[in-house]
Nucleic acid binder design. Structure first.
Lengths: 150, 150
DNA sequence: TATTGTTATACTCTATAACTATA
DNA sequence: TATAGTTATAGAGTATAACAATA
């Protein structure tokens, strides 16, 4: 019962696909260079991401589940972050088998810097669009973002 | 001299960022499962991609440059594709040091199948949007796609 | 000599298995 | 016994270095 034909949805999907590809290829070079310079792996950046946004300390198992990676992979990844003071790791007093990890101020700042780089890449591409195109895109995306709770 | 304020551009960039993240996380699980089943690495899929779209045979060096990976990595990656009949590799008659590689029919078909999966993930998310949202998004993206030559 | 691609080797990141310590 | 995390080991994929063939 869609009020939009399947062909239209398909065409839109292809457009979104092309748009994403363009954004991904255009904006990620600087990000990867920055990650290399900071000696952070992709997993470490992702870990910093969820820990930066987490309201409360997380166990390693919770991080492992959130990222869909094995516990050993997370253990080693977080270990590197702890050694550089980007993450704090301490025993859970209520279950001493478990370790609670939190992003430190420095860790949050490091993630913010990388996130800003990624955003800058997208902004550069958007700035190349005509003002009218930007406005139409903003108007079209805003309600979608709001409705999806992003 | 933009007719759109910087704050507006920033807000739009953030929306696009959120939208992309949602699309990437939503649609890629099936794709990775399919890749695993086909025993194709990311590099092999990317190689199939550019070879499928290439008008003419490419040298290994050209593939290496296009993907930003080392020649040995491409050599091994393509070797696997050749062994499975997805890519044809032959000496360049005009420079016998060079090998020319082309996607075979089977190789193109394999790439098309994976590409369709990725598109399906995006389409699923788009189908969740209200008809009006879809129409606004389509109207906003179409001119952008056309102007960027995508 | 310089260049194209391959083979050798070392490194990073991951997963499974074995282990330690708590529960 | 079961569970959280760590350490041991093996596998995939990449890069640099050494090599072979051709220019």
């Amino acid at each position: 019962m869609p009020a939009v034909s399947e062909e239209t949805t398909d065409a839109l999907a292809r457009d979104v696909f092309a748009f994403i590809n363009r954004l991904l290829t255009s904006g990620h070079r600087e990000l990867f260079i920055a990650m290399e310079k900071a000696e952070l792996s992709i997993t470490q950046v992702k870990s910093l991401h969820i820990l930066s946004e987490a309201e409360e300390p997380m166990s390693l198992g919770a991080v492992s589940d959130a990222l869909g990676l094995s516990l050993p992979a997370i253990s080693r990844s977080v270990d590197g972050l702890v050694q550089r003071g980007l993450v704090k790791r301490e025993e859970d007093p209520r279950d001493r088998r478990s370790k609670l990890v939190t992003a430190t101020g420095r860790g949050r700042a490091a993630y913010e810097r990388l996130s800003a780089l990624r955003l800058a890449g997208i902004r550069t591409m958007i700035a190349e669009l005509e003002p009218g195109e930007q406005q139409a895109l903003a108007a079209a995306l805003a309600p979608v973002i709001r409705r999806l709770g992003l």
